[in-house]
Design a binder for these strands. Structure first.
Length: 282
DNA sequence: TGATATGTTATCTT
DNA sequence: CAAGATAACATATC
C-alpha cells in the first residue's frame, strides 16, 4: 500500500513541515513500535528526510536519525506553525490524533507536533546513528526504480529468475519501492501477464515494462499516492491515485484498454493480482 | 461471524 | 539445499 510514491509523499511532507524544528520531547506509547533511546533526540535539530525504498530516514544535526517503515497502516501527521492553515483531516485519521491509534508523539519546539499513528501496528521507528543507516535494512534493498535502475540491470534481474515477473517486481532486494498496486498497474500497461516467468520476457517486453514502471510510479507521485487503507500525507489528507488505478482493485470491471474482457483477480504468492485475460499476454 | 487486505519476515514445503 | 509458497503479525471493515 504505501509504496514508493506514497512514502515519497510522506518524505516530502516531513521535509517541509519539520524544517526549522528541533525535538523537545518524545512520548513513546508503544515500545514495540518505537525502538531505541528517544533521549538521543532531545534538542536535536531536523536536517533532512530521505527515502530508501519504502523506508524513511529523518536525519538530525547530532549524528542520529530515525529510520521508519509505515508498512500497511502507519501515518505521520504534523500539526503546528509550519502548517498554519491545516486542511481538514481525512476520516482515516480522526480516531488517531492522540487517540488509541497514536503510538508515538514528537513534541517540537515552536509548538509543532508530529504524531505517528498505526492501526495495524506493523510499522516501526528506530533511533540509529546516521552513519550506520546504510548498515540497516537499507543495505538489502535493490536499486531505486526512478534513479539507479538501468535497463541493463533490469534485464539481468529479470533473466536470472524463473519466478513470476510480478513477484520479482515486488521483491525489495531486486528493485526497491514497488508494491502490489504499482506492480499490477505496470504489468497491465505493458500488456504482460503477471504470472509470466520473468526470464521468459523478450527484450522488447523488458523495455516496455521498464518504461511502464517509471510511468506508473511517476503518476502515483503526481496524484499524491494511493489512499487505499490508511495512507495520508503528513498534512493529514489523502492521495488520489486509488481513483486512477489502471487495473488494481478493478476485478469484474471491463478492461480500460481492450474493452473486451473483464478484469480477473487471482492470487500470486498470496497477493491479490489483477489482470486482463484478453490483452495481457502469456 | 469470519474472510479479507497489504509489506515483510519467518517458517514450511517441494 | 535452494527456490518458492505460505503463515504470521494486528486490526478494521465488509
Amino acid at each position: 500500500m504505501p509504496e514508493l510514491p506514497e512514502v515519497e509523499n510522506i518524505r516530502i511532507g516531513l521535509e517541509k513541515y519539520l524544517k526549522g524544528h528541533s525535538i523537545k520531547s518524545v512520548e513513546v506509547l508503544n515500545r514495540r513500535i518505537f525502538q531505541g533511546d528517544e533521549k538521543k533526540l532531545i534538542d536535536a535539530k531536523f536536517e533532512s528526510a530521505e527515502r530508501f525504498g519504502k523506508m524513511i530516514a529523518i536525519n538530525f544535526n547530532n549524528g542520529f536519525s530515525l529510520l521508519a517503515h509505515v508498512k500497511l497502516t502507519g501515518q505521520f501527521i504534523y500539526r503546528g506553525p509550519n502548517l498554519p492553515n491545516p486542511p481538514e483531516l481525512s476520516v482515516k485519521v480522526t480516531d488517531g490524533l492522540g487517540g488509541k491509534h497514536t503510538h508515538v508523539v514528537f513534541h517540537l519546539n515552536r509548538g509543532g507536533v508530529l504524531y505517528y499513528n498505526d492501526i495495524r501496528k506493523f510499522g516501526w521507528i528506530k533511533v540509529v546513528e546516521t552513519k550506520k543507516l546504510k548498515n540497516e535494512a537499507v543495505s538489502k534493498l535493490g536499486p531505486e526504480p526512478l534513479k539507479d535502475l538501468t535497463l541493463n540491470l533490469f534485464t539481468k534481474t529479470l533473466s536470472s529468475s524463473k519466478r513470476a515477473v510480478k513477484v520479482i517486481l515486488m521483491d525489495q532486494s531486486k528493485i526497491s519501492g514497488i508494491g502490489n498496486i504499482y506492480a499490477n498497474d505496470a504489468l497491465w500497461l505493458s500488456q504482460i501477464a503477471p504470472t509470466r516467468s520473468s526470464q521468459s520476457l523478450s527484450e522488447k517486453e523488458i523495455k516496455t515494462l521498464y518504461k511502464a514502471i517509471k510511468k506508473v510510479l511517476r503518476e502515483g507521485l503526481k496524484q499524491g499516492g494511493a489512499s487505499e487503507l490508511a495512507f495520508v500525507t503528513p498534512d493529514g489528507t489523502e492521495g488520489k491515485y486509488q481513483d486512477h488505478t489502471l487495473v488494481y482493485g478493478r476485478e469484474g470491471e471491463l478492461c480500460k484498454r481492450c474493452k473486451k474482457a473483464k478484469i480477473k483477480k487471482i492470487f500470486l504468492s498470496g497477493r491479490g493480482t489483477y489482470f486482463c485475460p484478453n490483452c495481457q499476454y502469456d
